[in-house]
Design a binder for these strands. Structure first.
Length: 578
RNA sequence: GAUUCCGUAGCUCAGCUGGUAGAGCAAUACACUUUUAAUGUAUGGGUCCUGGGUUCGAGCCCCAGCGGGAUCACCA
């Protein structure tokens, strides 16, 4: 029946007015014989920013990008073109673009059928307007790709004040492509991220270390204490884990004879999400043979300074309004001294009970499952960590916290481990790596006992890794650095979501708006279709619906275009349309 | 997980003690040959996140849910 006709066109009526207009423009372009999505390459030879920095009057240029604004003044117009480097103004003159009688290209195509956001290609020459704005005098333009959805359009005035900024975090993260188009500083953040990784890569390559790749799907998720994601391999019919770290594989490569290996690795942890944690994140880990953690501290501080130079152009950065100097060397403080300084308590030689008592005294909650290492870690995390704004190496961690780290050469309760703290947060973590296979096996067994006590993050025993160590691993120092957190520092962002292109979010629900009438709408429509025309109140009586349900239903029917309400002097009448 | 705030036009946001949904930009039409948040005139544009409830009447009040932000807790 007739209903079907109405409903079949519904998907089109779901479009906003502006979306519909753009589709109409697209059709008109096609009617004019213009392909809105041409296949051939466009021979770009210039970019907005370099044209502005190296102005050369009259230079012939070909460039392409999105048209982001249009100022039409009769026979002449200005438009802004945004390419990957920035924006440049373009000048369109009707009688130059259309020298003959036919002004369609300017009057119709440029002025009416092009929309903001469309990709166009420009051929023209550089000049400066009377106001001094560097612009391209357009000789020819080509539609390269039509945009069917209107972009948000932030505007900046002469004083640099931004209006109508696209700021809603949900929309920005879910539609990062839009965020990147309209928010230049967002793009800059990700360019800096790429520079940081390139800088580190260069730093390592110059020293002869090898970039490698190791498995992401691991039968035993080792190298860290964390809950993994599990998946299943069909052909092998075994569970596989997404890696929580790549440490054990990189050490196997040192066993195999490489002097230095590093990997930029995506790790995965099935834990909470907040402004500093995303379920997948990027870590750089590097292992260098014949070195210890003292060497690694020097290596790390040099690397950080170099990265800051390459990314920010300076080692003096500002984070959340605080000035931080990333110039090497960094301060070194043992964990014992750090705790002594900030609490007055000396952890040296203390028993578990004494440590627990100290925690109570400091107001730090404890529970019976915490061992010595955990208690010390709590004190440090609670009372010390936040104080290290300037880069500081905290060294010599308790043994229980570090099952893969070599025992300290002077104190068997400690390990040769450091963490680099910047802005009160951990940025890097490094060891003199444990290479004694017998000691390593005992440490794993200790982890197993923790696991049996209910610690679901205790490490698994990796027998193959132990076998590798038994063949012999040279003394080695390893270091891991959280790339996301480092980039947060360098770009002065306090949320990890700002430095990930696509932070994890709950899946978006794309509502399917069914063409079906709701039950209530059907009830109302059935009554009405028998009568064709009714008094509104009479219909409401007959329907027996509550006020709210009645209201929804009657609005829904009008929306579907099935009914029409007309107002006479003192009554409302409803009719079936058509 | 707890607390708290938010969800209204394509975008940014108003919306009074509950009384027929507003502005700027964007869009449409017209004018305008070096403008620049261009300007002037006119016009169109809404599932007020969803579902219940209270009410003669809900964008607003109540309940439940969805999504997001912030803070805290947990966790490397």
């Amino acid at each position: 029946m007739q209903l079907n006709l109405n409903f079949s066109t519904m998907s089109i009526s779901e479009l906003s007015g502006q979306e519909q207009q753009r589709r109409d423009s697209l059709q008109k372009l096609r009617d004019l014989g213009i392909n809105a999505y041409p296949a051939e390459l466009f021979p770009v030879n210039s970019y907005a920013n370099e044209l502005k920095s190296d102005f050369e009057d009259g230079k012939q240029v070909i460039l392409a990008g999105r048209m982001m604004s249009q100022r039409i003044m009769g026979k002449a117009s200005f438009a802004e073109l945004q390419d990957s480097t920035g924006r440049i103004q373009c000048y369109f003159n009707r009688d130059e673009l259309c020298p003959g009688e036919d002004k369609t290209l300017y009057n119709e195509v440029f002025k009416k059928l092009l929309d903001l956001g469309d990709f166009i290609g420009i051929e023209g020459r550089l000049f400066k307007t009377q106001v001094g704005e560097i612009s391209v005098h357009v000789d020819h333009f080509h539609l390269l790709a039509k945009s069917l959805k209107p972009l948000p359009l932030p505007k900046t005035d002469a004083e640099g004040k931004v209006y109508d900024a696209f700021t809603d975090p949900e929309l920005r993260y879910r539609q990062r492509y839009v965020d990147l188009v309209v928010n230049p500083q967002v793009k800059e953040t990700f360019i800096m991220r790429s520079k940081a990784m390139n800088s580190m890569r260069n730093f390592f390559n110059e020293r002869g270390y090898l970039e490698v790749e190791t498995p992401i799907l691991q039968p035993i998720p080792g190298g860290a204490a964390a809950r993994p994601f599990v998946t299943h391999h069909n052909a092998l019919n075994i569970p596989l884990y997404l890696r929580i770290a790549n440490e054990l594989y990189l050490k196997r490569l040192i066993v195999g004879g490489f002097d230095g290996v590093y990997e930029f690795a995506k790790d995965f942890r099935n834990e909470g999400m907040d402004r500093t944690h995303n379920p997948e994140f990027t870590v750089m880990e590097i292992y260098v043979a014949y070195k210890d953690y003292n060497w690694m501290m020097e290596f790390t501080e040099q690397m950080i300074e170099q990265v800051a130079q390459d990314v920010c152009g300076t080692s003096e950065i500002s984070v959340g309004g605080k000035a931080i100097s990333l110039k090497a060397p960094f301060q070194r403080v043992t964990m014992r001294d750090a705790i002594l300084e900030h609490t007055g308590f000396d952890i040296q030689g203390k028993t578990e009970d004494e440590l627990r008592a100290a925690c109570e005294q400091l107001g730090i909650p404890t529970d019976p499952s915490m061992g010595k290492g955990k208690l010390i870690d709590e004190i440090f995390g609670e009372k010390c960590e936040g104080n290290y704004i300037q880069p500081t190496f905290i060294t010599d961690y308790p043994k229980e916290m570090s099952p893969l780290c070599k025992e300290h050469r002077e104190n068997p309760d400690l390990t040769e481990r450091f963490e680099l703290m910047i802005n009160g947060k951990e940025v890097a973590n490094a060891y003199s790596e444990l290479n004694d296979p017998i000691d390593q096996r005992e440490r794993f067994e200790e982890q197993l006992r923790l696991s049996e006590k209910g610690d679901d993050e205790a490490m698994f025993i990796d027998q193959d890794f132990l076998r590798a160590l038994e063949y012999g691993m040279p003394p080695t120092s390893g270091m891991g650095i959280g790339i996301d957190r480092l980039v947060m520092l360098l770009t002065d962002n306090s949320s990890i979501q700002e430095v990930l292109f696509f932070p994890q979010m709950k899946p978006e629900v794309f509502e399917k708006k069914g063409p079906e009438l709701t039950e209530n709408e059907k009830i109302v429509f059935d009554i009405l279709s028998k009568e064709k025309s009714m008094d509104l109140n009479a219909l409401k009586e007959r329907s027996g619906l509550s006020n709210k349900q009645w209201d929804k239903s009657i609005k829904g029917l009008s929306k579907h275009g099935l009914t029409k309400v007309t107002k006479t002097d003192d009554a409302l009448t409803i009719d079936v349309v058509g």
